[in-house]
């Protein structure tokens, strides 16, 4: 048997989760939007910094990156994220059309006796360049987004920002993570704040996480979207726990518990509704810094201690 025959799905997933760093990576995700992912991520990061840890916080919600606002840190050290666009070289092109056949998004078109032209939305996959037998396609660049790295004492905030209207947001997430792995340096922990949903972007953000926390709320919507993200985490073979935000909302707590049981996932933290949390949120100061004694701060600090015991000891 060749090596190829023996590779199974588990090997593929393990390879997908490989990272070039040995720093513990914690994903903060949750399926539903507006459940408090960023609030939890930002406050967790702050709680670790207060304990003297060096933290890399990654804002991978590239469609709406807000962590810098919650932390009141300006975005700095911008780097462009570019994707390839094919540029056809007339005197090298043999009009063989392999590029047109291979293009999965049908973005290329060849008028009669003419070189191919790019008309549709090219996603930069470079398959056309790969199949071109005459080296007739050069790499043009298209700006799709930016990454930033803002340093504030022991906190490094990495932010990805997609240019609005551009489809290929995964490129920005992947570029952001590459940058994190390159620049996280001597960080003790990497915390990745994902976008809502259970799509490519969220997958790319969570890839390589040692542990992911699904933030949710006790509502029917929260339970529904929680189930979706737990399914994704199970497929990705990433250890999952639940953080129940607004835990005292009179509502669908039993629905959350039932999802947790179905997926054999524990609720490892509960954050009750807290006026002080809202006040800090409006000010753009993490609640664990502004009101360390608040019940929400205490809940998040307790969670950070659990994570530290599991991953930083």
């Amino acid at each position: 048997m060749t090596e190829r025959d023996t590779i199974g799905i588990n090997d593929v997933i393990a390879a997908m989760n490989e990272t070039p760093v040995s720093i513990p990576i914690i994903g903060i995700t949750g399926g539903k939007g507006g459940v408090g992912k960023s609030t939890v991520a930002v406050n967790l990061a702050e709680a670790f910094v207060q304990k003297g840890y060096k933290v890399s916080l990654v804002d991978a919600d590239v469609d709406a990156p807000d962590d810098h606002l919650l932390l009141n840190i300006p975005l700095k050290n911008s780097e462009d994220v570019v994707i390839t666009q094919p540029l056809f070289i007339d005197d090298k092109c043999t009009r063989c059309r392999r590029c047109i056949t291979v293009c999965r998004v049908n973005a290329l078109f060849q008028p009669k006796n003419h070189i191919p032209v790019l008309i549709g939305d090219c996603n930069g996959c470079e398959a056309c360049i790969l199949v071109c037998p005459s080296d007739a396609i050069a790499r043009n660049k298209k700006l799709v987004g930016k990454t930033f790295m803002s340093k504030n004492k022991n906190l490094k905030l990495f932010t990805g920002e997609l240019i609005p209207g551009i489809e290929e947001s995964s490129f920005v997430v992947n570029a952001l993570k590459e940058r994190v792995f390159k620049e996280a340096g001597e960080s003790d922990i990497i915390i990745i704040d994902t976008s809502p949903g259970a799509h490519c972007n969220v997958m790319n953000a969570l890839k390589g996480s040692d542990h992911a926390y699904a933030v949710t709320e006790p509502t029917p919507l929260g339970a529904h979207d929680l189930e979706r993200i737990l399914k994704l985490l199970s497929i990705m073979q990433i250890k999952a726990n639940i953080i129940l935000n607004r835990s005292d909302l009179p509502g669908a707590r039993e629905k959350i518990q039932s999802v947790a049981e179905n997926y054999n996932v524990e609720i490892s933290g509960e954050i009750a509704m807290d006026d002080l949390l809202v006040r800090s949120y409006v000010k753009g100061i993490p609640v664990v810094r502004m009101y360390p004694g608040a019940k929400s701060s205490q809940a998040i600090i307790k969670l950070s201690q659990k994570i530290a015991a599991m991953h930083l000891s």
Binding site: I100, V105, N106, A107, F109
Partner: peptide
């Protein structure tokens, strides 16, 4: 042949017509 294309059916259809 472009009828079931995920994306870019129009462009692929034009290729066939041309």
């Amino acid at each position: 042949t472009a009828e079931t294309a995920g994306r870019g059916a129009g462009i692929r259809a034009v290729q066939l017509i041309v």
